[in-house]
Design a protein around this nucleic acid. Structure first.
Lengths: 123, 123
DNA sequence: CTCCGTGCAAAGCGTTTGCATGCCG
DNA sequence: CGGCATGCAAACGCTTTGCACGGAG
């Protein structure tokens, strides 16, 4: 795998941010250090880094995807109003009986996301 | 709120299906009973029913949204390969301490989704 | 020198929206 | 009848892709 300046900066900047940026937010950030980068390159590298397991991607219904450079075990709280995502300590699910899977279904993972309102969006 | 034939059928068909259809899958289903319906109407009514709390909408990473006419308490398993969603008994989370929210953040709900492979996608 | 990765722009896809018409109440 | 809901199609926002060029190895 070839190491390009763009690739390096994209991963660095994502790991630096704890704001779970969307692709275009990260693009803006990367542009400060590498003005000629393109959005397409950001998307292509995010996909690649995802496949390599170096970053993770957060589910968002209907909206744009958000990326997380922190792959240590933790959960998220999402503001239902502005969509911003904050980190939260991993919920202690050990000891909780997992539900029975439907016949033939093999469960390999789960995603836990909390919903609420961030300080800026409450009034 | 006005009761139109379209609105009636959309809700009925969604409640009838346990496959968590996407908007266009539901559209196809509704068309069998009401051929002249439009996709826009399906979307508009899904939004409305959602606001009324009569149905729910499932988070799907990057892909299309899926809708659920069953609003009783239950969780979901999503096949990471084909994207299909199956119902699963609600995970017993009572007694598990919820994580501390970030300062000023008010958590009102959570979503728990299991990931795995459905029988059709395993070989 | 090779050929992978990039920039650019256009295409793709799910969803939303503007407008004139239709139909519920 | 009045006005909300619909059908239709265009617009939209995010993401992906095709193509020719450029730079890493």
């Amino acid at each position: 795998m070839r190491i390009t300046k763009q690739r390096e900066i994209i991963l660095e900047e994502l790991k630096k941010l704890s704001s779970h940026p969307s692709a275009d937010e990260l693009y803006e950030q990367v542009r400060r250090r590498f003005p000629h980068v393109s959005l397409g390159t950001v998307y292509r590298n995010l996909d690649l880094l995802l496949k390599l397991g170096l970053i993770s991607k957060l589910s968002v219904a209907g909206g744009q995807a958000r990326y997380d450079g922190n792959i240590s075990r933790h959960d998220h709280v999402r503001c239902v109003s502005c969509g911003r995502v904050h980190d939260i300590a991993a919920a202690p699910v050990e000891g909780v009986a997992l539900p029975e899977a439907p016949p033939g279904f093999v469960i390999s993972d789960y995603r836990l996301e909390f919903l609420g309102r961030c300080p800026d969006c409450r009034e």
